[in-house]
Design a protein around this nucleic acid. Structure first.
Length: 236
DNA sequence: CGGCTTTGACCCGCGC
DNA sequence: GCGCGGGTCAAAGCCG
């Protein structure tokens, strides 16, 4: 698979890793994030030496390459979903950025049971809190809402993959046990609260970890810059 | 001039 | 209760 396109930060055009699923994980799952191209499910069967019966599952797009299926709950060992990639288990704790495999797992579980749309009036995570900022007398309302999260890896020269949506960076943070800062992005579309954050693997700086939180309330074409992808997005 | 990025400060959850 | 670390805010600066 050598589908990297020139000048490409196109999501899926670079070699992705993918998360491994236990054999019993049932498919399909609700499409967790709106990928730029209509994906097909591809199930690749191979045995992992430590976890026989585990399958790698990827999403395949007709002309945008392969997509990894976002991280999924693994029952008793959710962390394994994020720590085992490409059939190669990570050896050291912390070698994988702590983008929250457990949290992903929990999120997906909950997402299956509750409505967590972007306008979510219900939330699985402690509702909301209100915080009074002391200094300037401003009232801050920080919503402690968590949306379903999905993460995947791609091998890319650039940090930010073009997934068809328009993102605004709102923060960057150096995280512990990582050589590379994590960048935080928010969808610029009004009323869309989808966030993503991007960081590079400390153990392999070519690997980009992208985590999405929430679901878009619009098609990528609503973001003015992406109409070249029009053909891809019709039916998500 | 508007939109975006940068970056330090702030807030909060969690573990000890 | 305290400290650490992650996530977010928002002012300032940059750029087209």
């Amino acid at each position: 698979m050598h589908t990297c396109m020139e000048g490409g930060a196109q999501l899926g055009t670079c070699l992705p890793n993918f998360y491994l699923l236990p054999d019993h994980q049932s498919m399909p799952l609700p499409p967790p994030l709106q990928l730029p191209c209509h994906p097909k499910l591809l199930q690749m069967s191979f045995d992992h030496e430590d976890q026989p019966g585990i399958h790698g599952v990827m999403l395949c797009s007709d002309h945008c390459g392969l997509y990894p299926l976002p991280a999924l709950p693994l029952g008793s060992s959710g962390a394994a979903a994020a720590s085992v990639t490409l059939g190669k288990p990570s050896t050291a704790a912390g070698s994988m950025p702590n983008i929250g495999a457990e949290e992903v797992a929990t999120s997906v579980n909950k997402a299956g049971n509750e409505s967590t749309a972007c306008n979510g009036s219900t939330t699985w995570w402690r509702g909301s809190t209100m915080v009074v900022a002391g200094e300037k007398g401003k009232m801050k309302i920080r919503r402690k809402m968590r949306e379903p999260r999905f993460c995947f890896q791609t091998r890319s020269e650039v940090d930010v993959l073009d997934d068809g949506y328009k993102w605004r960076k709102y923060g960057q943070k150096v995280v512990k046990n990582s050589l590379h800062p994590r960048s935080y992005f928010r969808c610029t579309h009004s009323n869309c609260r989808v966030k993503k954050w991007v960081e590079r693997l400390s153990t392999d700086c070519r690997m980009v970890i992208t985590t999405y939180e929430g679901r878009h309330t619009h098609s990528p074409c609503d973001d003015n810059t992406s109409c070249e992808h029009t053909n891809c997005f019709s039916s998500f």
